[in-house]
Nucleic acid binder design. Structure first.
Lengths: 120, 120
DNA sequence: ATTACATTTGAATAGTTGTTCAACTATTTA
DNA sequence: TAAATAGTTGAACAACTATTCAAATGTAAT
């Protein structure tokens, strides 16, 4: 018995092995896809995409974002932490204020492509 | 008393009104951002992004996808429903089989941009 | 030092989401 | 018509996530 054989979880008998092999070869490597999913997960939240979109116009302090989105400072700060951890934003401190800005030109491209898509 | 006045949820006194106004003017409209967030939410799942990536190589039946991702038919079918509802995939039936394929060239562009991003 | 204020953080909670399991369609074949 | 098979669907459960609240930082002004 060949223990390296994949045990298919589906009960299908008919699979198109050539098509499957083609897909397997052409797909990006596992790690890349996982990272991409993580990236999209960050974009896939209404608050965060509003923050990113706002920062596209220029840097803002946490208070500005809070006022702009009409959300509590705490909620905004929590989301900013996630954006920081994903390296999508950077920040600089000036006195008591913290100014955030976009960290990566990819962000703007991805945003632009998405808004283009949703506008058909 | 002006009831149209926004009640800021943050306790900040210092906001940069000009920066806020600039952001407000330049941001896409609310509906667009929400739709974009919904789109990214769909991309932001490991299973779904694997499916989309696999379909980039060509159409596959549900059983193929199930075998390729080593997941149950049911789990795959549930995710395919979400992809269908988002108009990201289309399908054609042939006998008992259902073949899925990508529905939109934007999908491929967004995927490509994301993989480019995660590879620094 | 003390106060004031912008921001962060941790815990708690409510809501969302992905997978599984079992039952159900729909199509083909015998 | 009956059996077999590819796929779908709904309910249930576990895992995750966004917001709130309260408390804690850190910086500037008094």
């Amino acid at each position: 018995m060949n223990h390296t054989e994949r045990l298919p979880l589906c009960s299908c008998e008919i699979t198109h092995q050539d098509a499957i092999e083609k897909a397997r070869k052409e797909m990006p490597q596992e790690k890349t896809l996982c990272k991409a999913a993580e990236l999209f997960k960050v974009f896939g939240d209404n608050t965060r995409i509003h923050i990113l979109s706002a920062l596209h116009a220029g840097e803002l302090c946490v208070c500005d974002i809070s006022a702009l989105l009409n959300m509590t400072l705490s909620a905004v700060s929590h989301q900013l932490r996630i954006l920081r951890q994903s390296n999508l934003v950077r920040y600089r401190k000036k006195g008591k204020e913290v100014f955030y800005s976009l960290n990566d030109s990819h962000v703007e491209q991805i945003l632009a492509l998405a808004t283009e898509h949703v506008n058909e």
